[in-house]
Design a protein around this nucleic acid. Structure first.
Lengths: 204, 204, 204, 204
DNA sequence: GATGAATGAGAGTTCATTCAT
DNA sequence: TATGAATGAACTCTCATTCAT
């Protein structure tokens, strides 16, 4: 019984690695199979098609990640705490789950509809009306005069942009500014810089 | 008006459109050919391989874009002006050149080395020591007490993240927050939000 | 009776037929496939490329043939027997393996290095120091005054030329001298003529 | 006027080099063009197709060669002179015209009918009934008891085999016997060996 | 569940040949 | 004559998918 679950899990992990490295069309079923140490035909036995495997991998990853994010977003009641805690959690999380980020990034660029659906599904079951509630909460903060950004959407976009973008663009940043970005060091600095900017820039 | 000489240019444009939509392996040479209204064999006549065409498209795009960006970065002497002008120029530029952004994004995720090379080449000839000079300038601003971010690199990353990320992540933002992002409207708001955040958050 | 295991063998045979008829570039993978009664993709499944298939066919043929030749060459101890037996064996062998001859001939003319390598490999494992020993043996015959040709290399070249060349040049001979060469009849005469010439011409 | 003839001649020479190196299907029109320092379209202007160019090259070469050969064959009246002179002339000639030999060899293996035709044509106009007369002459020698080979055809095949084969098979001989064949040295030895063998082996 | 062999549709690439000028 | 661009058919090779065992 253990072996079976193993196989599916191994395939999903292998799929994540491959899809995140090569994108959908760049990924080869052979490579997933050999990475998962499984016969190629078994991929189809378990997941019936590349398309479907892709979606399952995405779903699997999204499902693993969303819960970790929603709590902070939903529970934190005051903006200062929000802006102090979110970046740390996000940045650490992203830096530890770069495969996942890459896969989503690929998907965002290319297959708009699929990730929309996947998120909707997962949000639907996991999140309920989370996002709307977050926006409402932020709106209230603004109405109370606690923050300076009037549009809750841009409030969130600002946060996410600052936390996430560096991980996608790192190679180009390294090239342009000719600076090797050391892992841990960079991440700690990034967290501090983002928190400072957000607090000074959006709190009143 | 040289229909003939056009061919190369037409191929490069078609290539940009296709590669930016489908990534490297997802792109079909047939589609590039028909988009460029040209016989498929001509692609190979001019560019000898898909790989090479891809690189040329990237190079072509980078070469077209870098010059437009460098002036503002290099010329502006005071941080307030810098933070007021850059976001507008960047965001407008990105929103008008989404193909290019997508293509670079694809490449960033997947083929780190190639884009590094391409940028180095182009920066080498176009930019000279621009990036280093920018970092020095920012450092000086900090030393004079004009800005609050001590690390020039993160100063720049903050700016670029806020300007660029929204264009990549738009579909997911639309989904999560269930809001259709109207083009012009969104862009104008984005510019304002970013400028506010940056000025309030990083100027002293 | 293993239809499956046959596949590789069938491909090698079909490859020999086609390559020997059309040369490397003249040969079509489709034709090999259909001659082997196999899906075209299987060629690549088993042999990965045309180039590689070609080499395997060559290797396969060389490996099949060398052993049959070496025994006579190595075992025969006196020159009279040598010159009487060799031509018969060679000529019969060549006439029954014309595909192989043609393929090697093609290769000789065109791709010198490859066949060198293939022979070296096969000789290395099958033949050990056979050729050198043969030359030494012939040298001894000359030293004892048993043969008139002082150079062992030309001794061997003479034999091989007389046995092999007619099979390559048959069409041109037929044309020039306007004589249809009947198979069995021609071969028997050829054997006799060669043996006579060699014995009378090189034995003392 | 000079330039024009130049072009055709240059193409024919380039064609000989290429066809003799790569065979018919292995030869690329592009390479012939660039070797002849001429635009590719001009090949077709002058020779209308690859097939036709090939035949012209063959014809051109055959026409250049046959006359040089026929005189000795036809004029020499006694077998001793015949067997002494022919090998030297043949071997020298072959060693100086290896391209031609290779091209014919390719053709022999592959496109039997074409070279038959080409030879017939050229023999028809240049040679008249030469070959038949040679065979008759040899027959007479045998009837007079001057030679030991009763079949004139094999008499000729023996000569040609010994003179020509070494030039085709040189690479394989070098490999098998692990001996580098020095050009001039080898040729002189070859001539001597062949003459000795033929005289001792076929003269009475 | 598991495997190696098989398949068909299509991808990138090549090449002789032709066109426009 | 001469050239660079253009074309279409064919070729090698790939890959998701299925079959037989």
């Amino acid at each position: 019984m253990g072996k079976k679950k193993d196989a599916k899990e191994r395939i999903l992990n292998a799929g994540l690695k491959e899809f995140s490295s090569w994108g959908f069309s760049g990924t080869r079923m052979d490579k997933i199979a050999s990475r998962a140490e499984i016969n190629k035909a078994m991929l189809f036995y378990y997941f019936s098609s590349k398309e479907n495997l892709y979606q399952e991998v995405l779903r699997h990853a999204v499902r693993k990640i969303l819960p970790k994010i929603r709590n902070i977003i939903l529970l934190e009641r005051n903006p200062k705490g929000f802006l102090e805690k979110l970046p740390e959690i996000y940045i650490n999380f992203f830096s530890e789950n770069q495969d996942f980020i890459k896969m989503i990034a690929f998907d965002l660029i290319q297959r708009t509809d699929m990730i929309k659906t996947t998120f909707k599904e997962t949000i639907g079951t996991e999140f309920h009306q989370g996002p709307q509630m977050v926006l409402k909460k932020i709106k209230k903060w603004y109405d109370k005069g606690a923050i300076s950004e009037s549009d809750p959407l841009h409030f969130m976009i600002n946060i996410i942009s600052l936390c996430l973008f560096a991980f996608i663009a790192r190679p180009i940043i390294e090239t342009i500014f000719n600076q090797k970005i050391g892992d841990q060091q960079f991440i700690q600095k990034r967290i501090k810089s983002v928190i400072n900017l957000l607090k000074q820039g959006m709190l009143k």
